[in-house]
Design a protein around this nucleic acid. Structure first.
Lengths: 224, 224
DNA sequence: CGTTTTTTTGAAAAGTATCAAGAGAAGTGG
DNA sequence: CCACTTCTCTTGATACTTTTCAAAAAAACG
């Protein structure tokens, strides 16, 4: 609880009173937490594991919008108007969450302006990330987008090892393709290319080692 | 002042006290309000006119991230960590703004939780729009993106007329290209195509008439 | 009205998607 | 522990779309 950034300003007594309001839940890998259009009155915080948020386009393709992991939250839209999930949320692995009702959360904000600021900050961070993504998709080539994704994963899921950064990929090749909005064959090809250049090394399909982070940064920056 | 959504919950006395804190400014067309990297300690609300927010990619291309118009605000990131403009803000036409200092705004939120909720809601709306944009860019074809842009402009800048919706375009063809992340020649071609199909009619280069909104919706939905 | 800028149009080049088949990994049951 | 099935990933060839380059046309500006 204390590690959730949104509540970092609370302490002692306050933290306890907040804890009384939450409802904890667990979901096994693959389970759908909420389907697009489901009623969703809560603000949900991810405590462990990771969750993908996606919609299905009319042509049947899956577009992944977010990969939420520890400390991230969703459902904040329900604090205002919407009361249905704008996308489907599915556990990529075993997931633990805690949830607040809309009313409890609004009351909490009225009593603790600090929390309001913290939520705004979190929303702001998300916007900043999306602005990056937009820049990325808008201007950058596909090569650059793949590099940017590797850097994103390195920050979120990477562990430093002597040779570089080791990543346990939260998404399959197909998942990455659906996240980037490109064909899965293209993901294979681009990753193969990066490996040929010595920038990354594939370990086991689901794990991957980044050898030359600087090269990724440069490639993600612009390049063709 | 009353028409700014963020302050819609205030009234009378409160509104007056807020008004005392703001600093008004005007900028002629083409002027740079803030350049990327400039110090920016304020939250700035656009009262009239429109402003484009863009960055220059390392390869020299301009990527437009937002077109802010009446009622929109920017600089909210400065309420927290950052204190520099993350992108360049330039007036697309004569613009009037009002600005709050970081400190005043934080104090205001502490006294008026309603404003905090309203700001969160505005941020939330922006996120929703960006999610749409991401879906759009990720899954949709270029045709669909152009259609989606026309719909966006129709909502924001359109006026109903007997034949359909008349739009005074805030961006040039090149501007639209930089917004969508495609080549300006492609924008020309796609708009020409839409006109040939009888979906839109070009009036004067800067104005445009939407004849068949439903066709745009369908095209923006998915299609090839 | 001439000059400059923006837009349109055409043709060739580059890149990604798609289709098809094969290779590899993971899971299942004997 | 080993087939066997299934799913995912890789690789190759072709087709389609957009970009790029070049030039003409149109619009904006003084």
């Amino acid at each position: 609880m204390g590690k959730v950034p949104v509540f970092s300003s609370l302490s002692g007594q306050n933290l306890a009173s907040v804890a009384a309001l939450i409802r904890r839940r667990e979901y096994p890998k693959g389970e759908i937490l909420f389907a697009e259009g489901d009623r969703l009155d809560d603000l949900v915080i991810v405590n462990a594991g990771s969750v993908k948020a996606y919609t299905i386009a009319p042509d049947g393709r899956e577009q992944i919008l977010y990969v939420f992991s520890e400390g991230d939250f969703f459902g904040e839209r329900n604090l205002f108007d919407g009361r249905t999930a704008p996308y489907t949320l599915q556990a990529l692995e075993e997931v633990k969450t805690c949830a607040f009702s809309r009313e409890d959360f609004r009351a909490l904000i009225a009593d603790h302006p600090d929390i309001a600021l913290a939520v705004m900050e979190a929303l702001q961070t998300r916007i900043a990330r999306m602005e990056n993504a937009l820049r990325s998709i808008g201007v950058r080539s596909v090569d650059a987008r793949v590099s940017a994704l590797m850097l994103e994963f390195a920050e979120k899921y990477g562990k430093p090892v002597p040779e570089g950064v080791l990543i346990r990929l939260p998404l399959s090749r197909e998942g990455m393709a659906n996240y980037l909005g490109i064909a899965r064959e293209t993901v294979s090809r681009k990753l193969g290319q990066l490996e040929a250049e010595g920038v990354i090394r594939s370990i086991s399909g689901k794990s991957l080692l980044i050898l030359d982070r600087e090269a990724l940064r440069q490639s993600a920056g612009v390049l063709s």
